[in-house]
Amino acid sequence: MENSRLIVSPSPHVRDEDTIHKIMFAVIIGLLPVLIAATYLFGFNAIRLVVLASIAAVVTEALCQKIRNQPITLWDGSALVTGVLIGLNVPPTLPSWMMILGSVVAITLGKHVFGGLGYNPFNPALVGRAFLVVSFTLPMTYWTTPFDAVTTATPLELGPQAVAYPDLFFGTIAGSLGETSAFAILIGGIYLFYRGVLDYRIPLGYLGTVLVLTTILGLDPLFHLLAGSLLFAAVYMASDMVTTPVTPVGRWAFGIGAGIILVVIRIWGSLPEGVTYSILLMNAATPLINRWTRPRIYGQGVSKNA
């Protein structure tokens, strides 16, 4: 009965079991179906790029933290997630050194210049990807078919007449490593949803808006959902916690806004794909969205009529 040994700390005295670390590794598990599909479709290139991107991201994170005199927190897994994401976001033939550079840029310019985990306004993997597209436009738009690696164009460039839906669904089409197989993405997304790390509002808002707008515009909505990196981005990038609104309404607004921007770019823009910019632009709008979509506080606006 030693009084002084008792621990005194403020309530609550129990905590939920989830940690940042567990959340990040759940995201990695949620990416496994996509990693498997990418390896199946694109073979060694998939492994080469994802592994290089991941190692580069993790090493860069450690260096940044060392330079900034911060505790090294690699075990939180966030750098690994960024690495895997950017690795899955490039064409299969990208040279290794470009991949590494993209990953380094993602972690430095995308994350640490803003203060590290939690402080970055933009999705780091997309910052890295945008950098690669701008710097190395040709290699970043050089597409090959799965399995036999014949040079081709992406379905978005070819148009709906040129591709069959089963190919779009299972991913036997050209594209970035992780984006082609809708099937694998759906499995990963469902896992993440049930694991409680994927808020349904942003993906549904994003995909729903594209579906509705393309239908209104007389286009092929299913094609627009499955072709390009929309589905991959909706599940794994647009829903990134750090760079999206915290309010429930705000998360709908984010998804819908990104959907509108995407359709505008795809239909009227000079680029075939607009996923990266649609999300980055909405990332920029996130602080405003948070401010404009505050929930009504319990009891406010209720009259005291006794």
Partner: peptide
């Protein structure tokens, strides 16, 4: 990490 779980669970609908 702005996961918004605190927002989702707050019974007073605060942020």
């Amino acid at each position: 990490i702005k996961c918004a779980r605190c927002v989702d669970v707050c019974p007073a609908s605060l942020l």
